[in-house]
Design a protein around this nucleic acid. Structure first.
Lengths: 129, 129
DNA sequence: TTTTCTATTTACGTTAACGTTAACGTTAGT
DNA sequence: ACTAACGTTAACGTTAACGTAAATAGAAAA
């Protein structure tokens, strides 16, 4: 039973696959891309709590239409900010870009939702016959 | 000069390409997929105002991470609601699904924005040294 | 007239994000 | 001992959304 982890917080590949409703192939692919870093005991993978968090973030990114690379970039931003002044300023720029993009998305969503709501009303109206 | 349209509202392929910053290849591809329906004068395409609107919607969809097919589906929803009761109810269901998805996206955006803002603060804090 | 745009069709190439075999080892239950 | 359930690597297949190149044609500008 790899499903009940030893003591700390480790997950087998199918633990995560089941919980997040992705295939094991997907998880191996994410590892291959460096998005997840499970440890190996023999050849078997064990995912950490950190991996789980990263997976959650990746899937959130997917729902937003981000590529894996974009999600990886964003997750990178979450690390403790460090480095020189120049690096910190560069980080701030990236943050601003991402925020701008997300804000644009939010705008697009509002528009689309309003469009759909308009259609919905017409539809309910048409049902009044 | 195909750029200054005759009288009504027609656009050459590069009018639209320039305005929306896409390639002509993209527009031909969208036509091939049935997303745009330019008329032909000889072999040359002329896009209508309706095509322009559709293009705008497609690109909005893209910013939301939608596939062309999804965008096409949504644009379909925008047509005057008609048909039987059954059809109208089916339409209402689709509308509800889309709205749910968009609402989830909005949620994901809020979370991500909040995450990024948190990082931003840490970053500014780190610059106080 | 010759060059230069802009347009066309046809068709092969590309990248991302997995899906899908194949071929096999390990452990648990019966 | 046998089967089922889970794990592994390796590698080819697939779909979407265009990119890119080749070959061609009409029209405008020099």
């Amino acid at each position: 039973m790899t499903r009940n982890n030893p003591h700390g917080t480790q997950y087998s590949i199918s633990d995560l696959a089941d919980e997040f409703e992705v295939t094991t192939r997907t998880l191996r692919f994410y590892e291959e891309k460096g998005l997840l870093n499970p440890v190996r005991q023999g050849r078997v993978r064990y995912f950490s709590a950190a991996d789980r968090v990263r997976l959650r973030l990746i899937l959130r990114g997917k729902r937003l239409g981000l590529s894996l690379e974009d999600s990886a970039d964003i997750i990178e931003l979450y690390r403790e900010p460090e480095g020189s002044k120049r690096q910190l300023h560069a980080l701030l720029e990236k943050l601003a870009e991402r925020k701008a993009q997300l804000t644009q998305q939010a705008k697009d969503i509002r528009k689309t939702l309003s469009d759909l709501t308009r259609v919905e009303k017409k539809c309910r109206q048409a049902l009044q016959d």
